[in-house]
Design a protein around this nucleic acid. Structure first.
Length: 479
RNA sequence: UCCUCCUUAGCUCAGUUGGUUAGAGCACAUGACUGUUAAUCAUGGGGUCCCUGGUUCGAGCCCAGGAGGGGGAGCCA
C-alpha cells in the first residue's frame, strides 16, 4: 500500500478505505481497552487520531509508541466516534520505525517556552508552533517566486562572495583561505591579500543590489532571493547575521512605480499564505491571543493575526514623504509631552520609536516613507531636483519596523561619481558599476525586503530567531 | 556595544527576615479506569539551587567577579 500524507488524507477524506500513514507520535492516551495515538507528519498542523484497541494490540506492541517516536500505521479510515475530529484510523498494524525514549526525549506533550525550543532547534520543527511557522515560511518563499514569475521578472543569482565592500550596508564577514597563524605580509607590513584565494580581499555579500542593477540593464526586470550576511554585533529580535533577502531591480521604473510594486508584492504574498496556510495562521493567531492574555489591557493587539493580515492585504498603504513624517511627529502629542527619547528634526534619521509612532499610533497601517535627506542615505540613491533629498523609500510595518528599503537609483554618471567621492568610494573599484551608467544607462529602481521580517509579520512571531530554522547571531552558530 | 531583568527537578515556576531534611504543577515510571482530546485518579523515583570566590555559627537567599539567556536601544532588512 502506498503511504498517504495526512493533509491529503484529510482533504479527500472518504471513510471505509484502508490507508498507510507514517509520521511522529505527538501523544498517546487511553486505558486498558483502547489507546488513542495522535500522529503528525508535518504536512499539516492537524494530527490524525489512530485508534489501537487492546484486542488487536498487546501492551508490549504499544510500549514503544511514545511521544516523538516515528511510526507507520495501517488501518481503515473511519468516521470518528469521539468529538474533536471527523476522521480517525482504526489501526490493524503499527510499526515503530524509530523509538524516542520518553525519559530523555526533550519534547513533551505540553507547551514549551520559545527560549527552550530555541536551544533544541533541531527538534523544534516537531512542535505545532514551529511546524506552522515553517510551513508559512515555505508558502511565502514560494509566493515570492510565483509573484515575480507571473510578472516576467528574471530570477538572478548574484554572488555570495564579493570583493566589493563599497555597498556600505554594514560590517562584512571576511572570506579567506590564508593561514591565520602565518599571515603573509607586504613590505609595508599590511596583510598581503594578493596571496589569498581570489588574489584580493573578499567578503560575504551584504546585498545583491549592485549586481542586480547590472542584470536589470539587460533583462529589464530581475529579482534576487538569497542569503545575505552582516557581521554587525546586533542583539535584537529583528536582526540576524545570516538572513534571506529579496531584491528586485527594475529598469525604467521611477520611485512611484517602485513603491507600487513593493506594495502589490507584499499584499500578494500575504494573500497567498492566507489562501494556502489558513489553518497554520489560525493556530498562530490563537497562540498569539493566548500570549496577549498575559499582557496588560493597553498593550494587547486590537486585531487578531488573521484580521491584521486581511486588513493589510485589502487596504492601501499610507504614503508620506520624510518631510511630512517629521511634521506629523513634531506636532504629535507624544512629541509635545516629550515622550520621545530622541529628538525629531529635519535632517536626522527616524528612530524606531518614531517609526513605531507613525505606524502603530498615527496611521495604524503600513506606511511608505519617501524622499529622505540625501545625507542620511546611500550614495546610489537618486538625488531629487531640490538637491536636498533622494528618491528613497522605506516601508514600515506594524510590530516589525522597517521591512523594505529601496530607492530610485542614480543613473546620471556625473552626479553618481560625485556622491561616491563624498563617501570615500574609489571610482576605479566600481568601474563595472559605473559602466552601466556609461553604456545605455536609464532610470531604474529597486528595493530589498527582509524575508525573515516578512515571515515575522505573517506569523506574528516576536523574535526573528524563531522564523529561520537555525539562526546565526553573535555568539551563536549552533546546529 | 549600551541599559535592564532573569538563571532552583526533564519543562514551567514558588521558595517569607539568612536557620533543621529545598517545594508545586506538568512530564516520566507503576497501578486503576470501556472512546480519550495537553484524558483523569492514586502511588513513586527524580536536585552541581548557573560557575568561582567572599561575608557568616549557618547562604538557594547577602557581597564581588564570571558565564548563559530574555527584553529594550543603536546599526539595519
Amino acid at each position: 500500500m502506498q503511504r498517504i500524507k495526512i493533509k491529503e488524507l484529510l482533504e479527500g477524506a472518504e471513510a471505509g478505505h484502508d490507508v498507510l500513514l507514517k509520521g511522529w507520535v505527538r501523544t498517546k492516551r487511553g486505558n486498558k481497552y483502547v489507546n488513542f495515538i495522535a500522529v503528525n507528519d508535518g504536512s499539516t498542523i492537524h494530527n490524525l487520531q489512530v485508534v489501537a484497541e487492546a484486542d488487536k494490540f498487546s501492551e508490549e506492541a504499544l510500549k514503544d509508541v511514545t511521544t516523538g517516536a516515528a511510526v507507520a500505521v495501517t488501518g481503515q479510515l473511519v468516521a470518528s466516534q469521539g468529538k474533536g475530529q471527523a476522521y480517525e484510523v482504526q489501526a490493524t498494524h503499527i510499526e515503530v520505525l524509530g523509538k524516542a525514549d520518553p525519559e530523555v526525549y526533550p519534547l513533551q506533550k505540553k507547551a514549551h517556552s520559545l527560549e527552550f525550543l530555541r536551544e533544541i532547534a533541531h527538534l523544534r520543527f516537531r512542535t505545532n508552533t514551529f511546524g506552522a511557522v515553517f510551513r508559512v515560511r515555505n508558502a511565502l518563499a514560494f509566493a515570492v517566486h510565483k509573484f515575480f514569475n507571473e510578472k516576467g521578472f528574471v530570477y538572478m543569482h548574484t554572488p555570495i562572495i564579493t570583493a566589493s565592500d563599497a555597498e556600505g550596508a554594514g560590517e562584512m564577514f571576511r572570506v579567506t583561505t590564508l593561514d591565520l597563524d602565518k599571515l603573509p605580509r607586504t613590505e609595508e607590513g599590511a596583510i598581503n591579500f594578493a596571496e589569498d584565494f581570489f588574489g584580493k580581499a573578499t567578503n560575504l555579500t551584504v546585498s545583491g543590489q549592485l549586481e542586480g542593477e547590472l542584470a536589470a540593464m539587460a533583462f529589464s526586470d530581475i529579482y534576487t532571493f538569497g542569503p545575505t550576511f552582516r557581521a554587525e554585533n546586533s542583539n535584537t529580535t529583528r536582526h540576524l547575521a545570516e538572513f534571506w533577502m529579496i531584491e528586485p531591480e527594475m529598469a525604467f521604473y521611477d520611485l512611484q512605480m517602485n513603491a507600487d510594486l513593493a506594495e502589490e508584492f507584499i499584499k500578494y504574498i500575504i494573500r497567498h499564505a492566507l489562501e494556502n496556510n489558513r489553518d497554520d495562521i489560525e493556530f498562530l493567531g490563537q497562540r498569539l491571543a493566548e500570549e496577549d492574555k498575559a499582557k496588560p489591557q493597553n498593550e494587547r493587539q486590537e486585531m487578531t493575526l488573521l484580521e491584521k493580515l486581511e486588513f493589510v492585504a485589502n487596504n492601501s498603504f499610507e504614503r508620506i514623504t520624510y518631510t511630512q513624517a517629521i511634521d506629523i511627529l513634531v506636532n504629535s502629542p507624544a512629541y509635545k509631552k516629550k515622550k520621545f527619547q530622541y529628538d525629531v528634526s529635519w535632517g536626522s534619521d527616524l528612530h524606531s520609536e518614531h517609526e513605531r509612532y507613525l505606524v502603530e499610533k498615527h496611521f495604524k497601517k503600513p506606511v511608505i516613507v519617501t524622499d529622505y535627506p540625501k545625507d542620511i542615505k546611500a550614495f546610489y540613491m537618486r538625488v531629487n531636483d531640490d538637491n536636498k533629498t533622494v528618491a528613497a523609500m522605506d516601508i514600515l510595518a506594524p510590530g516589525i519596523g522597517e521591512i523594505v528599503g529601496g530607492s530610485q537609483r542614480e543613473e546620471r554618471l556625473d552626479i553618481l561619481v560625485e556622491r561616491m567621492k563624498g563617501v570615500g568610494i574609489h571610482e576605479e573599484d566600481m568601474w563595472w558599476y559605473l559602466d552601466t551608467r556609461r553604456f545605455g544607462g536609464c532610470p531604474h529602481a529597486g528595493f530589498g525586503l527582509g524575508f525573515e521580517r516578512m515571515v515575522q509579520f505573517v506569523t506574528g512571531m516576536g523574535n526573528i530567531r524563531d522564523v529561520i530554522p537555525f539562526p546565526r547571531t553573535p555568539q551563536n552558530a549552533e546546529f
